[in-house]
Design a protein around this nucleic acid. Structure first.
Length: 293
DNA sequence: CTATCTTCCTGTGCGC
DNA sequence: TGCGCACAGGAAGATA
């Protein structure tokens, strides 16, 4: 589920309910996810105040009083689920591996926020707030696509000399941070670039177009609350609806909206066979074979 | 250095 | 309605 827009949406939801609050307790229900939870996690969480949030690529960072930040990656199936703290006993949530409880404001009931992740590809770590970007999982990450530092020149330099398909290059978090399978497919469609083309051979004009197209698709999705495929994305249980605006992702066989192939006269070959699917590096790629070159 | 493959997990949807 | 199988939003780590 979670690529940059989904992580941004989740983070904003957490910010709204957690920032400024004091953590009363942490409930750690297994040893870890992808890796063991860090030593002393519960102790650092309990009693700390939540100072704020930041996103880096697909990672979220929750700053705590005391000088630590909690680093979280949602993996493939991670969600954050918020509910009244009183529900904890009578309605256990499946695959809730870690949760924190915060006090309510003005006498309101407290809140429990749980990290739910059936596939357990997510991860949680602690890092000194002053050294967040030095964490081994964040060091070496490419530019944030929504920041000014992500320019055609920067992207061009990252793609130069790379003979890997452009699809795989854009999934590489060292090239640009936060893109995943959905948004790479969508951005390549918008920029008119064939996913199998070698990264270094994408013509300059279209390579430059990638920058605004990546930004546009990410911003549109954030505005829609991200994409909700099989899970709720938002901490408040609300659904993102960007999945309704996919132009190619998961649309194999459907007509490509850029090609008027439905209007082809009878007996003539349609100019576009519609959205195709291919497998690259073990992952589905969706694209229009006529308009992506 | 780069590129490719395997691996970690559970849930879901489909064909039979 | 059950069973087996393919596939799912990620990416680290091993290997060539």
């Amino acid at each position: 589920m979670p690529e940059l827009p989904e992580v941004e949406t989740v983070m904003r939801g957490l910010d709204a309910v957690l920032t400024g609050r004091r953590i009363l307790a942490a409930d750690i229900r297994r040893e870890g996810l992808r890796w063991p939870f860090p030593e002393g996690l519960a102790a650092r969480l309990a009693g700390a105040r939540v100072l704020g949030f930041r996103r880096r690529g697909k990672y979220m960072l929750m700053r705590l009083s005391g000088g630590d930040s909690v680093l979280v990656h949602l993996g493939m199936s991670g969600r954050m689920v918020a509910r009244p703290a009183s529900q904890r006993a009578d309605a256990p949530v499946a695959h809730e591996h870690l949760a924190i409880e915060v006090a309510g404001e003005d006498g309101a009931e407290g809140l429990r926020v749980g990290f739910v992740d059936p596939r357990r590809f997510g991860c949680v770590d602690l890092v000194p707030t002053a050294a967040e970007d030095g964490h081994r999982l964040l060091a070496g990450m490419g530019p944030e696509p929504l920041e000014d530092a992500f320019t055609p020149a920067v992207l061009g330099a990252a793609l130069a000399g790379r003979r890997t398909p452009i699809k795989a290059a854009l999934l590489d978090q060292r090239v640009v941070a936060g893109l995943g399978n959905i948004y790479v497919c969508e951005a390549l469609f918008r920029a008119g670039i064939a996913p199998e083309r070698e990264a270094a051979t994408v013509p300059g004009a279209r390579a430059r177009r990638l920058v605004p197209e990546i930004r546009a698709v990410l911003l549109e999705s954030i505005e829609a609350g991200g994409s909700s495929l099989r899970d709720y994305v938002r901490a408040d249980g609300g659904l993102g609806f960007f999945q309704d605006r996919f132009r190619v992702y998961d649309r194999e066989g459907e007509p490509c909206e850029r090609c008027p192939n439905l209007a082809a006269p009878p007996g003539t070959r349609p100019p576009c066979p519609g959205v195709r699917r291919l497998v690259q590096a073990g992952r589905s790629t969706f694209f229009c074979p006529r308009t992506q070159r």
